[in-house]
């Protein structure tokens, strides 16, 4: 799994780590039941604080992409690939909306219309 961060980016580091994991999930590089690297190892490799990685893992857990287990660490859940793809597409949609000047309310209305 490739995790990349850009310290010069305005996006928080934990969000960049989470985005890399989402990308790996949607690309099929991670499958259900697979373990993510231990937070300490990932933090050392990327030269960032371990709490940054833990925060990213917490975010992914809240999104339902991973489970955090006491002995096995961070494990990919069954629904992760679908959720990760949705998250990735939603991110791209939000970026495109910002680029063309559509605000959040307007974008929400568009999504609601399409959903119904």
């Amino acid at each position: 799994m490739l995790i990349r961060i850009d310290p010069a980016s305005q996006a928080p580091l934990f969000e960049q780590v989470a985005a890399s994991v989402r990308r790996a999930l949607s690309d099929g590089e991670l499958a259900q039941g697979q373990q993510l690297p231990p937070a300490r190892e990932l933090a050392t490799s990327l030269d960032i604080n371990v709490h940054t990685v833990l925060r990213a893992y917490g975010l992914l857990r809240d999104e339902g992409l991973i489970e955090l287990r006491r002995r096995r660490g961070a494990v990919v859940t069954g629904a992760a690939d679908t959720r990760a793809r949705l998250n990735t597409l939603a991110g791209e949609l939000a970026d495109e909306a910002r680029r063309v000047g559509v605000d959040l309310d307007e974008l929400t209305e568009i999504v609601k219309e399409k959903f119904t």
Binding site: R4, I5, D6, A8, E41, L42, L46
Partner: peptide, 14 residues
């Protein structure tokens, strides 16, 4: 190539 840009840090664990 992984397309790493200048200033980016990355790790691959697998």
């Amino acid at each position: 190539s992984a397309g790493l840009r200048p200033g980016e840090r990355a790790t691959w664990i697998g």
